[in-house]
């Protein structure tokens, strides 16, 4: 059995990410632990969006809503002195999965532009809900009194430990996602993306499969939100702003829709470019924009496609 370029690229990516904390410590640049942790948190959100966008063809323009719900699920208990991480993160997943159930149940009855607009509208509603929560800081948001506590050696105040927790979650989610898209369930949502009338004509009642995928993606987005609140130790309604949803979608498109691993590259490249370019000029988006346009125009499967070439078909 030959080892594919894809396997090599994935292994290399995993090793590189795992090496960030020791390298940062050796070079005395702790800032990079912080930066790459942030990258991986957004990567988790982007990978979860890719499940429904890249595989299921559901162009959800409100994925940041789950980031926000996950962040508030950490922030609000912390506000009342509840800092148990299992409880906070569990609540983050449950609350965002529940929100995804409601949003999905309504928006999945539409398709095309209507679907995009409805998911966007729901996210903006939650954004304004966040602003109206005066107790929790309104539009200023609120500072987190401390990071989630798990007891034992899992102390998130330790930057490297928090880093490896995020890396482990990302790797686990990628592994689960990789199984999911190749499973019977995965084949159904991919068939729905490829040709919906045909999928219905052979007997798939698509709504429940799409809704399930939507809820899985929402739950993972919520977990990313819980991580993000711990990352910044601060949360604001801005987590849910539509520009944030757009940013996550850009990561997916830049990295490669329907590649699962591509959005990780998308998150790395987008956030690093943002970091590097914003140090050069305040108008860094003028440089970022054309780069995105070039990738969209010339790399069909995004940066991941450029890296590993066309996916071999084993069907």
């Amino acid at each position: 059995m030959t080892i594919s370029r894809r396997t090599i690229a994935l292994a290399a990516g995993g090793v590189l990410l795992a090496l960030v904390p020791p390298v940062a410590a050796l070079t005395n640049q702790p800032f990079y632990v912080d930066l790459f942790r942030r990258v991986m948190i957004f990567a988790l959100a982007a990978v979860s969006l890719d499940l429904i966008l890249g595989y299921g063809g559901m162009v959800s323009f409100g994925h940041a809503a789950y980031l926000g719900i996950g962040a508030y699920a950490v922030g609000i208990p912390a506000f009342y002195g509840v800092d148990n991480g299992w409880l906070q993160w569990g609540l983050a997943i449950a609350a965002s999965a529940l929100a995804a159930t409601v949003i999905g149940a309504i928006s999945l009855r539409t398709s095309g532009v209507s679907f995009i607009m409805i998911t966007l509208a729901f996210a903006q509603m939650l954004y304004y809900l966040g602003i109206s929560l005066e107790t929790y800081g309104g539009d200023n948001g609120m500072r987190l009194s401390g990071r989630s506590r798990f007891g034992g050696p899992l102390d998130l105040r330790e930057p490297a430990i928090f880093y490896y927790v995020v890396l482990a979650i990302l790797v686990l989610f990628l592994a689960l996602g990789n199984r999911l898209v190749a499973s019977r369930f995965g084949m159904v949502i991919r068939a729905a993306k490829s040709n919906e009338p045909r999928a219905r004509a052979i007997g798939f009642s698509l709504f429940r499969y799409k809704l399930t995928a939507f809820v899985i993606a929402g739950g993972a987005g919520g977990l990313a939100g819980a991580l993000l609140a711990n990352q910044t130790e601060y949360l604001t309604p801005d987590f849910m702003h539509w520009t944030r949803s757009g940013e996550i979608m850009f990561m997916v498109i830049l990295g490669g829709m329907g590649t699962l691993f591509g959005p990780v590259i998308g998150a790395v490249v987008l956030l690093l470019l943002e970091d590097v370019l914003s140090a050069l000029t305040a108008h860094w988006q003028i440089i970022l924009g054309p780069i995105l346009i070039l990738v969209v125009l010339f790399a069909k499967r995004g940066l991941f496609g450029l890296l590993v070439g066309a996916e071999p078909r084993d069907g």
Binding site: R179, L180, A182, S183, R184, F185, G186, M187, V188, R190, A191, S194, A199, I202, G203, F204, Y209, T212, R313, G315
Partner: peptide
């Protein structure tokens, strides 16, 4: 999808259970 995938999807639709998330179809 490959021709075989196309037909396998039809078989899957007909034989029921598609809420299976783990095993490679």
């Amino acid at each position: 999808f490959s021709a075989l995938d196309n037909v396998a999807l039809a078989v899957q639709a007909h034989t029921g259970q598609s809420f299976r998330f783990w095993r490679a179809a």
